[in-house]
């Protein structure tokens, strides 16, 4: 059963068509990665899916009950403490103070954010802790669907790994489905069940690959071998590292 389906989505910016009749389905408990070079429209697609922008044509249907979203930047409110930032979606939902506090603390534990850091403001936190806070904010609503908009692009390699592990563990435990935008193929292979390649020339999805590795067997060597095989042998991935900013702009 699909929890999110986009049907014939088309979108254009100032007359330039970015997406043309894109159709995609995300099944229950499945993490789908969208990969492609920058400017290919994958960000636009996830924003349409998360209903942040209205598609010019097409239909978005969702069957999930609650969703969360993680952005490239943490996007924390600078005037609120880490705890209040995590609890923000609950505040929007109208939950009481005590319940908010309890659930925010639980979410902070899940992303291993220290209790003593919860009273701090975002400026006092390191980059990694800020992103942990943002992840906790997405998980606090106990979502059954999570949108990931290039969440770890700005982080350094070690931190990125930690965050990926965190997401993998959380997804396994909470069984949420997700849409994961990234331009890092290794990241897509590590965290997702299925990869969709977005290509500017077809203005949409050029093709898809199911990741053959079982979720428990994705160590570094296996991930590296899969990425190499995709890049060398699979024509679908021939253009994903093309980065022509002139075309992209």
């Amino acid at each position: 059963m699909s929890v999110l389906s986009l049907h014939n989505i088309s979108h254009a910016y100032f007359g330039r068509t970015v997406l043309d009749r894109v159709t995609l389905d995300v099944r229950e408990g499945e993490i789908v990665a969208l990969v492609g070079p920058s400017g290919c429209g994958k960000s636009t697609l996830i924003h349409i899916a998360a209903r942040l922008i209205e598609a010019q044509r097409g239909r978005v249907a969702s069957a999930y009950a609650r969703h969360g979203m993680i952005f490239q930047e943490p996007r924390l409110m600078p005037w609120a403490t880490a705890e209040d930032n995590i609890a923000y979606p609950l505040r929007l939902a109208g939950l009481g103070r005590h319940q908010r506090r309890a659930r925010a603390r639980h979410a902070a534990d899940v992303v291993s954010l220290d209790r003593s850091d919860l009273g701090k403001y975002p400026v006092e936190l390191s980059g990694g802790m800020r992103q942990r806070t943002a992840i906790a904010r997405a998980l606090v609503v106990e979502p059954d669907f999570v949108f990931f908009d290039e969440p770890f692009t700005a982080l350094d390699v070690a931190l990125k790994r930690q965050m990926q592990d965190l997401v993998i563990a959380a997804a396994r435990q909470a069984r949420f489905a997700g849409l994961f935008v990234t331009h890092d193929l290794a990241e897509a292979v590590r965290v997702s069940d299925r990869i969709l390649v977005i290509d500017e020339r077809v203005r949409g999805i050029a093709g898809e690959r199911f990741i053959a590795l079982p979720a428990g067997a994705r160590d570094d060597a296996a991930v590296f071998a899969t990425v190499q095989a995709y890049l060398k042998e699979d024509p679908l991935f021939a253009h994903i590292y093309d980065r022509d900013e002139r075309l992209a702009s």
């Binding site: 942040l52 979203m69 952005f71």
Partner: peptide, 12 residues
């Protein structure tokens, strides 16, 4: 606007 988008994404 980024913060507003965030709020929107969480249903505000």
């Amino acid at each position: 606007r980024a913060l507003e988008d965030m709020a929107k994404a969480f249903g505000a």
